[in-house]
């Protein structure tokens, strides 16, 4: 058992973790942030994707005690009140959700991509979400929404 401190969506959080407590379970069960999902618990589906120091990780494979002091971003921290992030809004407008289970992980992978590459090609978007499984197989609208979000971000930045 160890005390772990995290900055989650900009806010300091402290909890006690066992050695086997994953970042995913800590977020979901101890911090009440259930946006990241458990789809496979083996790093294969991407439903649990969050950003660790700005990089997308499958939080089901990250032992919480190994990331003490880290900066974590989850889907819950993207919107500013009622104002959605560009990626969220593009997913909404572009009908890029079906059952919604993969959506938070998909959005976090997209946010990370656009943070490091504001003008990705379609291939680069495919690559960025290659670890996120959508079993409703709605990949086309998802990829289009991410490209749309890139445009919105660049135009927003110009304002």
């Amino acid at each position: 058992m160890r005390i772990v401190n995290l900055k989650v969506n900009g806010v300091g959080k402290t909890f006690i973790a066992r050695p086997e407590t994953t970042l995913l379970l800590a977020l979901r069960e101890q911090l009440g942030l259930t946006g990241a999902k458990r789809g496979c618990a083996q790093g294969a589906c991407g439903s649990c994707t969050v950003l660790l120091e700005g990089e997308p990780v499958v939080s089901c494979l990250v032992p919480a005690v190994t990331v003490d002091g880290a900066d974590i971003a989850t889907v819950e921290g993207l919107a500013d009140g009622p104002a959605l992030s560009h990626v969220q809004q593009a997913f909404l407008d572009g009908f890029a959700t079906q059952c919604g289970f993969c959506t938070p992980g998909m959005i976090m992978s997209a946010e990370a991509l656009l943070d490091r590459n504001p003008d990705p090609t379609r291939d680069e978007v495919n690559e960025a979400i290659s670890g996120n499984v959508c079993r409703c197989t709605g990949y086309e609208p998802i990829v289009s929404a991410i490209l749309d979000a890139a445009v919105r971000r660049r135009e927003g930045a110009k304002l």
Partner: peptide, 21 residues
């Protein structure tokens, strides 16, 4: 016509059964 559940999906607030503690 927008899906009634899409806002919850993109914000992570849609409540799946395992999201309750």
């Amino acid at each position: 016509v927008q899906r009634s559940d899409a806002l919850g999906h993109v914000t992570g607030r849609t409540e799946f059964f395992e999201d309750r503690t």
